[in-house]
Every structure is written in C-alpha cells, then in structure tokens.
Design a protein around this nucleic acid. Structure first.
Length: 292
DNA sequence: CGCATTTGACCTGCGC
DNA sequence: GCGCAGGTCAAATGCG
C-alpha cells in the first residue's frame, strides 16, 4: 500500500549495506530520519530516550538526509541496524468492512487510511519474530519484491491496541531481521510467563517502544562496516512468551550471541534494571531515568 | 475449545 | 486505465 515501498525497493535491502549507522525513520511513508535534535526528540516524544550526545558518540548515528528525502524506500538505511520510524499520519485510510478495525487500518469505503508513526529496528537474529514483551498475532504474510524472504504482518493481540508490526529479513544479510512497528501501544507489556514481567512504566516501554529483546546497538561505530558481524553489538536475551514462535525467539538470542562469539562476553545485566537494562544503553536511559 | 498460524483472495495506492 | 506490489481479510488448519 502506501509504502509500497515506494519502493519496490525493499526497504530491508536498503537498510543494510549502507555506510553509516543510523537512527532512521522510514521516509517512505512521509517520515524522515533524525537529522537534528528536533527530530531526535521525536523519539523522546514517544517514549524513546535518545540522547543526541550519545548519537554523537556513535551509538546512534543520524543519516544524511539528502538521499532520504528523495528516496523514500531507501530510508531504511544502515549497516547493521537502525532504528527507523515513520510518521505517516497524513496517509490515506483503507475502506473497511468492520467497525472494529483500528483507526489506522480500514475505514469506510472512500475514507483514507491514516497511518501511524512507524519505527523500524534491525536486529540480528535467526528467528523472524522477536520477543518484545507484547503479544502479537500474525495476520498475514507476503512475499516481498526483490527479497527472497517473505514479510510477516503482526497485530497486537490486545483488542484495544492498534499497533502492528512487520517483520522481514534483509535480503542482503539474512541474519538481519527488520521489524517495523506502527502505532503506539495503549497498554503495557504483557508479563512473561517464563521469566518475569515487564510492566514498569518506564518511558521507554510504556509509550510505544517495544522492549526489543534482541535489539542490538553498536558500541563503537565503524563507519565502513557493511555487515553486522563486524559490528560490536550487545545482544539481549530475555524470557519469551508462551508460544512456539517465542521459543524460537529465545533461541535466537543464543544464536545471536554465537554470531558475535569473537566479542568479549557481556556481563549479565543488573537484575534490577529489568529488560530495559538489557536493551537500552545507560547513556540513552539516563535522561529518562532522571525524568521518572 | 480457544487461540494462533497459514494462505489464497481481495482491496488499495501508485507508477506507467 | 491497467498492472503491479503491498497490505489486509478471513476461512481453514494446527496446536496446546
């Protein structure tokens, strides 16, 4: 649809293989990358706590926007991972048949579909569906042009929650999973039957951000990196939800760690920091923690 | 039995 | 207007 990816060029592909890291936004839907503080603050507005300083340090690196503005579909660009999002509030709505549909999906015929902000994450994982603290129901799968890997569509199982996510693999690096979230959760994460509960109201997780089980970020940012395996990453493992796909998700953590076997073992995260501690670098959390 | 997944069909938007 | 591709629906199926 709208994002048709405008692209036909599979965003996943563009995501990987570029020369710089980024915290990007899927411009294909009318959004953009974070190129200045204002834009970075957008993440803060939705619960992310991205400190520009940290960006400068290389944790997250903005992408040059010039090409993005003209190449929407390639807005997903980064070598290994990127956090991208798109705000596409002005996009059309689809016609609908059900009044229970979320506002961003289908509406009455003739009405335009309004797209919600989208945020994409690149993760290195062998499983497509990564555990993120929420429960998802798969509602579709589609083959994507220019990619041998299908794209899966998930919806939050919470009936009142309109959040959706797309999961696809990068065709350039099959080990990379691109997860695109659309919308904001109107509830907190579900508990993890096998390992605790993620429900605290940190700004990170309570607003939109998934708790991103396997989100990994570069500690050092070699600009020339073209593959994930050369990147220093922090892998995060966490308990899974109850279904088999989550089981797979759990195993992927180990896989991911294995992929980075050359890296020094990471110390176990402090238990009192919960999942957030696993996922968000301290530098990124600080501001948020202070504000809590 | 309830819930999640699969999968083909359908709908919509966009480019030509 | 037509075709293509992405996105969604919904019936069928599977699993715990």
């Amino acid at each position: 649809m709208e994002d048709k990816d405008r692209a036909s060029s599979d965003p996943a592909g563009d995501f990987v293989g570029k020369s710089s890291w980024n915290l990007g936004v899927d411009d294909s839907d009318g959004s953009h990358f974070f190129t200045d503080d204002r834009e970075r603050n957008m993440f803060g507005d939705i619960g992310w706590n991205l400190d520009p300083n940290r960006v400068d340090e290389g944790l997250l690196q903005p992408v040059q926007t010039s090409s993005i503005e003209t190449a929407p579909s390639s807005s997903y660009r980064s070598n290994n991972q990127s956090v991208s999002s798109s705000s596409s509030e002005d996009l059309p709505e689809k016609s609908t048949v059900s009044d229970e549909k979320p506002p961003d999906t289908l509406k009455k015929k003739g009405q335009k579909r309004v797209r919600q902000p989208r945020f994409a994450f690149m993760t290195k994982s062998e499983v497509d569906h990564l555990e993120d603290g929420y429960r998802w129901r798969k509602y579709g799968q589609k083959a994507v042009k220019n990619s041998p890997f299908p794209r899966s569509y998930y919806r939050c199982t919470n009936s009142k929650c309109t959040v959706k996510k797309r999961v696809e693999r990068s065709h350039e690096d099959p080990t990379i999973v691109i997860t695109t979230y659309e919308g904001q959760h109107c509830h907190h994460t579900v508990g993890f039957p096998r390992g605790g509960i993620i429900s605290h109201e940190s700004s990170f997780s309570s607003q939109f951000a998934p708790t991103m089980p396997q989100f990994y970020y570069p500690i050092q940012l070699p600009r020339e990196l073209n593959t994930c395996t050369t990147t220093t990453t922090t892998t995060v493992s966490q308990p899974c939800e109850r279904r088999h796909d989550y089981e797979a998700g759990r195993s992927s953590s180990a896989t991911m760690a294995a992929a980075d076997a050359s890296l020094p073992a990471l110390p176990p995260p402090p238990t009192d920091e919960g999942l957030l501690g696993d996922i968000v670098p301290r530098g990124m959390r600080n501001r948020d923690e202070r504000n809590i």
